[in-house]
Amino acid sequence: MKTLKAIRIVAWAAVAIVIGGVATVLVLQQFDDPPIATVATIGGPFSLTDQHGQLVTEASLKGHPSAMFFGYTYCPDVCPTTLFEMTSLMAELGPDADKLKVYFVTVDPERDTQAVLADYLQAFDPRIGGLTGSREEIDKTLSAFRVFSRKVEGEDGSYLMDHTASVYLFDDDAVFTSTIDYQEDDTTALAKLKRLIDGA
């Protein structure tokens, strides 16, 4: 009988833990941004080169708000779409867009060289900086910004990259404030950028 009682206590304890866990998840889901990482952990030292050959480091994110997103030129949908959306949002912002720095960071530096990015980005707002660097520097950056990226090998030596599709927003002190998620509606996205610029 004692064993049965013990089992019952353990079982109820387990139920309590599960309920507690579910409650925690539900509470976390109340927040707008997914609890992927705490604010303070997104960002850190990096050293990359833009499509014009200029060095861009964590210091380049200070003194003005910034938007940063990650992708690669072999990507047919999300990346050109996000670049296009950012171009449109910058047009909507008008002169205020000059107060914002926008960076597209490649997750595929082997193929996205400075020259490739320079060509590719001609289709978008010229103020968007395309950042690349050595595999090591890119990995360091992705890790600092908590960006997920994974190479998926194809049959014939070709490959695809899975990657974080959100646009990260930083204030003028390079502190992460929020994200614009993939396919977030234009009005919300524009409001977030305006708030970011006004708050700077």
Partner: peptide, 30 residues
Amino acid sequence: MTVSDGVMTMRPLAEGVEVPANGTLVLAPG
């Protein structure tokens, strides 16, 4: 293509994709 938890994933479908009987298949961004 799928986007889950903010991560974009793209996969080839070797078997293709079904067009349901008396139904519609939409290929669209996302």
